[in-house]
Design a protein around this nucleic acid. Sequence first.
DNA 1: CTGAAAGCGCTAACAT
DNA 2: ATGTTAGCGCTTTCAG
Lengths: 340, 340
Amino acid sequence: MSGIEDVASLAGVSKATVSRALSGRGYVSSETRTRVTEAAQSLGYVVSSSASSLVTGRTSNVGVIIPVINQWFFGSIIEGVERALLDRGYDLMLYNLTKSHAERTRVFEYFLVRKRVDAVIAVTLEITPEEAEQLLALGKPIAGIGGPLAGIPTLGIDDVEAARLATEHLLLLGHRDIMHVGGDLDEQMDFHVHTKRLKGYLQALEAAGIRYDEKSFVPTHFDIPGGYRAGKQILGDPRRRPTAIFAAADEVAIGIILAARELGLSVPEDLSVIGIDNHPLAEMFGLTSIEQRPDEQGELAVDWVIRQLEEPGWMPPTEHAYLPATLIIRSSTGRPRRTS
Amino acid sequence: MSGIEDVASLAGVSKATVSRALSGRGYVSSETRTRVTEAAQSLGYVVSSSASSLVTGRTSNVGVIIPVINQWFFGSIIEGVERALLDRGYDLMLYNLTKSHAERTRVFEYFLVRKRVDAVIAVTLEITPEEAEQLLALGKPIAGIGGPLAGIPTLGIDDVEAARLATEHLLLLGHRDIMHVGGDLDEQMDFHVHTKRLKGYLQALEAAGIRYDEKSFVPTHFDIPGGYRAGKQILGDPRRRPTAIFAAADEVAIGIILAARELGLSVPEDLSVIGIDNHPLAEMFGLTSIEQRPDEQGELAVDWVIRQLEEPGWMPPTEHAYLPATLIIRSSTGRPRRTS
DNA sequence: CTGAAAGCGCTAACAT
DNA sequence: ATGTTAGCGCTTTCAG
C-alpha cells in the first residue's frame, strides 16, 4: 500500500505538492498536476482518510439516523440520501434507531460522537429533549426529515394539509360518511404524523359542517396487514359502513381495499378509499393518493447539510420547509352511490 | 472539545494510561481506570476515531454493498447487518450499487479503497471479474450474501434446492401442469438467482417425468406489479391455464394471486400458488412459501467478517454456507381440482 | 508555483 | 501498573 511519499518521489516533487495536486487545494502547475496524477494512478495510491481527517478535522461522512428501513417511505429516503451523498463524495453511515433504550443510548452517546461524521440527517425522529440537545451539542450541521423540531432545520410535507386535502377530495365527491384509518396515537415513531393526519381530517370535516363521531377514527398498524385488519373490522358490519375511508398511508389504504374486495364490496362503487404517499403499489390498485417524494426529501436534506459544511455560515432558508404534496386521482375514489 | 491530554491531566496520569484505561488494552489498575473514566465522562471526552485509526490501521467500519434498498429481502439484510454491527461496536457504511457504470466505478475505485472500512459485506453482488479482483485486492475480510462467488466466502440458501422443494410440493399435491414465473434471465442483479430457481423447477419436473414446455416459464419483474402482470397474462387465457404456479419470489406470487382473484379464480381451488421468501405479506395472503431469513443471513455475514478481523487467521468454515430454507404451508396450495 | 517542517490526536513499543 | 517517546500519513503554514 503506497503512501504519499512514494507518489512524491515517483513524480519528483514533494509530499506537499502531491497533496495539493490531488486534493485540488492550492496552486499547482497543470503539468506537475498531471505528472502527480499519473504517478498516483500507477501506484494505485489513495489517500488515507484517517490521516487526512486527522489534520483537516473533516471526515466526508454523513450519519443518517432512521427508525425503520424496511418500509417504502424510509427505504426511498435512504436511496435518495445515498445517491446525493455519493454524488458529492461523501460516505453514508447508517444508524437504525429502534425503540430499544440501550441501543438509542449507544447511538447517541457513542457512535455519533466519535468525530466520525461531519453532519447528521435525522429521519422522522422521535427524539427526547436530551437527545435533541446531544445532537445539537455535536455542533454539526443537522437536517431533519419529517416535521418541525425545535432548533433543527427540518423538511417534509405538511401532514395536516395533506390529510385535509385527502379528506376534502372525498367531501367534494359528495361523501359525508368518511372514516379515518390512521396510526396508533401512542405509537408515533416520528414527528407526530399520526396526530397530524388525524387533525387534518378533523379540520376538513369541521369545515364541511360534519360532526365527528369518535368511532370514525380507527387506529392501526402502518402497513398492509394493518389496513387489512382495520378494513375487515370496519366493513364487516354493514350497518356502520362508511361510504369512504381516508387512510393515513397507502399501505393501509391497500389493506383496506383488499379487505373490501374480500367482503365483496367494490371500490369505488361501494367504498371510496384514499391514501397518502403514492406508494409504487398505488398505481396497481388504482389508489387515489397524495404524493410525496421521500427520495427527493432525502436529497434536499443532503443539500442542506453539505451546503452548511462547504459554505460556512449558510443556513437552511427556513426552520421548516414544507414540501409539495399533490393529489393524484385514480379509480379508488368516486361519488358515493347514495348521498345520505 | 477536549483531547486525551485534558483527561490525562485531570486524572493525574499520562496520555498512555488514559488510552489504555479507555480502550481496555493493556494493564491499568482498577482505581486509575475509574478515575480516568470519570475524568473522561466529566469532560465529555470521546476518542477521535481518525487519530486512533491512523495509528492502529483499524477503522471499526464495515462497508455494505447492496444493489437495492427498497425491497423486503434487501431491507431485512440491512437491518440484520446493522444490528449485528452496532452490537459489536462497528459502524455501517452503506453503498447502494446500482447498474450505473459511473457509480459502480466510483464505489469500487474511490470509496471502498480509502482505508475507510475494515471489511466488506457484499449483498447479491452482480460483479465483474475486475470488480471481484479489486475487492479481493483490498486484502480485507469480505463476505458475500447470495450465492457462491469465486474467492469470496459466501452464504445464502440453495436456490436450486429451494425451487425444487417448492415445485415438488406442488407435484406432491398432484399438480402436473405447473408454470414458473421468475425473474428475467438477462436482468440478474445477483448470483444468478433467476437461473437457479428456474433450474430447480426444471429438475423437479424432470424427476417427475414431466416434459417441459418452453411456454411454462414466464419471466417478469421481481415485485407485486410484476407478478400481477404475469398473472393476468397467464391466467387470461382459460385454455392454457395451469393448475399451479411456482413464483420465484413471494412478491411475484402475491401479484399472481391478486390477478387470479380479479379474474374470478379462487386460490387454491382453481389455482395453487407457491412462492419463496416468506415475505411478511405471505401470511395475509395465505401464501405457501419457502422461508429464508435475510436478517439472519446479514448477522451471519457480520459474524464472519468480524471474526476474521478479531481472530487473525480465522476463515469461514466453507467457501459457501448453505442456509436452511423451510417450506411453510398455507392455504394458497392444495390438490388440483381435476388431475390431468 | 513548490519545498521544508510542524503538527493533527492518538497508540504501542519500550522503559521504569 | 504507569510514563516516555516515537511515529501513524497526511495537510498546511511559511519560506523561497
